Amino acid sequence: HDTTVHINGLRIEVHGASEEILKWIEEAARRGVEAEEIKRWVEEALK
């Protein structure tokens, strides 16, 4: 999927993410993980 995830006011563009990654992002956000940190993880995961 190409999608934009909104976390604590930060937009994260996610290209080619699976449902699993999207669920993981939402879970991390709920746990209060910094949005910048999530963004870094997602970029690494999608390389």
Rank of each mutant, 00 (worst) to 15 (best):
R31K: 10
E43A: 13
E36Q: 09
G16P: 03
L46N: 04
A17Q: 04
L46Y: 07
I25D: 00
A45L: 12
R30I: 11
L10Q: 07
V42R: 00
H1C: 05
T3P: 08
K39M: 12
V33R: 02
K47E: 07
E13M: 07
I25Y: 01
R30W: 12
I7P: 02
E36W: 15
N8S: 07
I38S: 00
A17Y: 05
W24R: 02
V33W: 14
I7K: 01
E37L: 13
H1L: 11
T3S: 12
G32E: 03
W24S: 01
A35W: 13
T3N: 11
L22N: 02
R31E: 06
V14P: 02
E44H: 13
H1D: 10
R11S: 14
V5D: 03
E19C: 06
E37S: 07
E44V: 10
E34D: 14
E26N: 08
V33A: 05
I25E: 00
T4S: 13
A35G: 07
N8M: 03
A17L: 10
D2G: 15
E27T: 06
R31W: 13
L10M: 10
K23R: 14
V14T: 08
L46G: 02
R31P: 00
K39Y: 11
W41Q: 04
E43N: 08
H6C: 14
E13R: 10
H15I: 13
H6F: 08
I25W: 01
A17H: 04
I12M: 03
D2V: 15
E26L: 15
E20I: 09
E34Y: 09
V5Q: 03
E34C: 07
T3F: 14
E20F: 15
V33H: 03
H15R: 10
G16V: 04
E43G: 08
E20Q: 11
E20G: 08
I21D: 01
G9P: 03
G9M: 02
A29S: 09
A29I: 15
W41I: 08
I38W: 04
G9V: 02
E19I: 13
A28C: 05
E27P: 00
G32R: 02
S18T: 14
E27M: 12
A29G: 05
I21V: 09
I25L: 06
L22P: 00
T4W: 06
V33T: 05
A29H: 09
S18R: 05
H15D: 10
A28S: 05
K23L: 11
L22K: 04
L46P: 00
A45H: 10
I38A: 01
W41E: 01
H1M: 13
V33E: 05
V14W: 08
K23G: 05
A29M: 15
G9L: 02
E26T: 13
E37T: 10
E20L: 11
A35M: 08
A35C: 06
I25K: 00
E36K: 08
I7Y: 04
D2N: 14
L22G: 01
R31I: 08
I12H: 01
I38D: 00
G9Q: 03
E27V: 05
A45W: 15
I38Q: 00
E36G: 08
D2C: 12
K47Y: 11
A35Y: 12
D2T: 15
T3D: 11
V42E: 00
R40A: 09
G16H: 07
E27N: 10
G16Q: 05
E36S: 11
S18P: 07
S18I: 06
D2R: 13
I21K: 00
G9C: 06
A28R: 01
G9I: 02
E13N: 14
A17I: 07
G16C: 05
K47A: 11
K23C: 05
I12Q: 01
V42F: 04
E13A: 06
I7V: 09
V5Y: 04
H6K: 09
R11C: 08
A35T: 06
N8L: 04
D2S: 15
E20N: 08
V42Y: 03
R40I: 07
H15L: 14
K39Q: 11
E26H: 14
